[in-house]
Nucleic acid binder design. Structure first.
Length: 745
DNA sequence: TCCGAATTAATTTTT
DNA sequence: TTAATTCGGA
């Protein structure tokens, strides 16, 4: 008997919910995963639903893994049969199962973003389109977005000459993908949705397939994902979606918050449950987070509360620059550790990866062990991708992107000229690159030396493929690739520190294949390749007691005793990119991001901002983030270096003594702001801080005149060659202006 | 074909 | 600033 004692009233209601669609708005730390796992346990354990007819979808492999683990505890038997997986893995599974009806090979390769980009580049070449006018990255992005909106090449939205060209590229791209027997990430979802839409029999089959569908992080779904979920559950209409519109931080990846906000329009008979009790954070931290996100206009009304104690006030630390910030962060870490927090329960968050370096240096100097989450992923490393490309070619000879990747790696004298000839042959005859290789090898009009090189490459791949088809283990094949293609030798000959690291990575790759063979139900090469592309995050082994450094995005779903958020300055967080779109939506997403960041903290929240910051080789001076001032003054206390004076020279070095510093909480520079300006800015009227630091003769907040744009207000000053200033002009928006074109007004 | 200099661009990144 | 990509010359 499953005990529901651990659940509160709304949680229990969601778990026991009987019929029809249900949307659960689950605030941060309100126990949403618990609701999903208990509900599944209840369905299978109490209501005797068949586990293999229950589908739970997540976004990340990590979330899926956690769910499966928690389910295993609640449901000792049957838990393993429940379908728990990411959108992509679930679709891949269904696509392989129904490949014949859909008209694809069940051995399809899965292309990641880099592979798609390579494919676009190739199409560009075939169509003789300038790469600089149509950067592959941009075009691949457009195609990806189209697929997220369930639009094929024929439905691609065209509104100018450029999109017309992209549409053409898209069509050819699709053709080449088919030829290569490959599906990209977008295809995994779109092809299934499309197949259901065009094939009634398949639709009927799949609608029968699951009795219950549950979706986690529903606020992050995009259009196809909604369609997929909708189509899969229409028969039984047992759909439970769980999410938090305030934690929707992937709009730029196609996520549409409307999916959760308007769920009741899509499913008019939907039940709505809100989980508003937070079990994670102190009341003060929760208030801080809420007061920021509450300023957003479009959100589902809800108020989180907690029975946890008030806790300490949020610490706001003013720093001189990013190095000072790192130094003070180290102090905050030590202080938290002294208060009994394990390093593994402390994290430093930043808005962009570029901020991590200074922290790494400071932590290394301070001898504090840390790990950086994100950055280059294991399976994205060039050498790993190379070896995987060989393996993919063994599995699927027509995988053009992989063939092109390995054909001259290591170098075997098959250079650009030859590859051009290969691509031309493939394009004119409508065959794959692998087939074109054979054609050229057998062509009498080709130089004998070239034909010999091609023959040796083909012979190598064919013999490996032969071994693969004889059932040789994936790990043995990987070793064979390393030894027989000369890849390993190439690295050994190199004998640089980098090549050593690469060899180590390849050893690790082989090791991971061995692990896979021991654990997987079906230890085939195909299964391994699928896992590798769909599972981009390799779970690092529990690496001891370490501090965590990561972006706020990466922090979603995690929690720590102490959270330090760095770089809380205007332009930085809220971040504003190159052309400052003063988009309301963008600012609201930044606010949600801050909400996510703050709500990760259980006990201590430290917010840091620097008066001056070096970024991308420039010096920027920005006011501290409006998000700080949006926190109720009673819930924060402010420490750190004194604010710079107007026109003051840069503070002398000895203002920041390295030694003999007073303890963290008796900092003599402690200042508290509770003046009129705070409330003025809180209402969004002004970006101007009390700081009057100047640069290039222009000061923050100053009114300036520009010949074309008229009078505006200085929002940021950026040192460099030439110095630039960010100015907001009423009616023109925010512009970056070279300082000499401005004069004080 | 390959290497090093020049040029360019720069959030966030679940799969 | 840095890192990736492109370009030009040997």
């Amino acid at each position: 008997m499953l005990s529901l004692d651990a659940l509160n009233a709304p949680q229990r209601e969601a778990v026991l919910h009987e019929r029809g669609p249900l949307v659960v708005f689950a605030g941060a730390g309100s126990g949403k995963t618990r609701v999903i796992t208990y509900r599944i346990a209840h369905l299978v354990g109490e209501r005797e639903e068949r586990p293999w007819r229950v589908l739970a979808v997540t976004f990340t492999n990590k979330a899926a893994g956690e769910m499966r683990e928690r389910l295993g505890k609640l449901l000792p038997q049957g838990g393993a049969d429940v379908w728990v997986g990411t959108f992509h893995a679930t679709c891949a599974k269904l696509l392989r199962k129904h490949a014949a009806e859909i008209g694809i090979k069940s051995s399809f390769a899965i292309y990641d973003e880099a592979d798609s980009k390579a494919m676009v580049a190739r199409v560009l070449r075939d169509l003789d389109i300038d790469e600089r006018r149509y950067p592959p990255k941009l075009v691949a992005g457009a195609i990806e977005r189209a697929k997220q909106e369930a639009r094929g090449p024929d439905d691609f939205k065209v509104f100018d000459a450029e999109t017309e060209v992209i549409k053409r590229i898209y069509a050819t791209y699709e053709e080449r993908m088919r030829q290569s027997g490959a599906l990209d990430f977008g295809d995994l979802l779109f092809r299934l949705v499309y197949a259901m839409q065009t094939n009634d029999k398949l639709l009927a089959t799949l609608q029968q397939r699951f009795d219950h569908v549950l979706v986690d992080e529903f606020q992050d779904t995009n259009h196809v994902q909604l369609r997929l979920v909708h189509d899969l559950c229409m028969q039984h209409r047992s759909l439970v979606v769980v999410g938090d519109d305030d934690q929707s931080i992937y709009r730029w990846r196609g996520a549409n918050r409307r999916n959760i906000l308007d769920f009741r329009d899509q499913f008019p008979d939907a039940t709505v449950i809100k989980l508003e009790q937070n079990y994670r954070s102190t009341a003060r931290i929760l208030r801080a987070a809420q007061s920021v996100v509450q300023r957003n206009l479009e959100r589902e009304p809800k108020t989180l509360w907690t029975s946890n104690p008030d806790g300490a006030r949020v610490t706001v630390v003013r720093c001189h620059d990013e190095r000072d910030e790192a130094r003070l962060a180290v102090r905050a870490v030590r202080d938290a550790a002294q208060a009994g927090h394990a390093l593994s329960d402390i994290a430093i968050f930043y808005r962009i990866h570029a901020q991590s370096r200074v922290f790494e240096e400071a932590l290394r100097a301070a001898n504090i062990p840390y790990r950086v989450v994100g950055g280059v992923r294991f399976y994205d490393r060039a050498e790993v991708k190379d070896v995987l490309a060989y393996l993919r070619v063994l599995e699927n000879p027509d995988d053009d992107v992989s063939v092109l990747r390995v054909v001259n790696t290591p170098s075997r004298g098959i250079g650009k000229a030859t590859i051009d000839r290969l691509l031309d042959t493939a394009a004119t005859r409508g065959i794959s690159v692998a087939e074109a290789l054979r054609v050229l090898r057998d062509a009498d009009d080709q130089p004998a030396a070239l034909r010999k090189k091609l023959e040796s490459f083909l012979g190598l791949v064919d013999s490996l493929r032969e071994r693969a088809s004889q059932g040789e283990a994936p790990s043995a094949l990987a070793r064979a690739v390393l030894d027989e293609t000369g890849y390993k030798q190439m690295l050994e000959t190199d004998d640089t520190p980098e090549s050593d690291a690469r060899l180590e990575n390849l050893e690790e790759l082989v090791g991971s294949i061995v692990d896979f063979e021991e654990e997987a139900e079906e230890p085939t090469l195909r299964a391994f390749l699928e896992i590798v592309t769909l599972q981009t995050d390799v779970d690092e082994v529990a690496a001891g007691d370490r501090l965590t450094l990561m972006t706020v995005h990466a922090a979603k779903g995690l929690e720590f005793d102490t959270v330090i958020v760095a770089g809380l300055e205007e332009e930085m967080f809220p971040y504003r990119g190159l052309d400052p779109g003063s988009d309301r939506e963008e600012l609201e997403e930044e606010r949600r991001l801050a909400y996510v960041a703050f709500t990760r903290a259980r006990e201590r929240l430290v917010l840091m901002h620097a008066s001056l910051r070096h970024l991308f080789g420039q010096t920027r001076i920005n006011a501290r983030s409006r998000f700080i001032d949006e926190i109720p003054p009673d819930d924060r206390h402010e420490i750190g270096v004194p604010p710079p004076r107007a026109s003051a020279p840069p503070p002398p070095r000895d203002v920041y003594p390295e030694r003999d510093e007073p303890a963290w909480d008796e900092n003599p520079y402690r200042v508290t702001y509770r003046n009129a300006k705070t409330s003025e800015r809180a209402s969004g009227e002004s970006y101007v801080d009390r700081e009057d630091t100047d640069l290039a003769g222009l000061r923050l907040g100053m009114r300036v005149r520009h010949a074309k744009f008229g009078i505006g207000q200085v929002r940021a000053v950026t040192e460099g060659h030439p110095p630039r200033v960010t100015v907001t002009f009423p009616g023109w928006g925010t512009k970056q202006i070279v300082a000499k074109f401005l004069e004080p007004a």
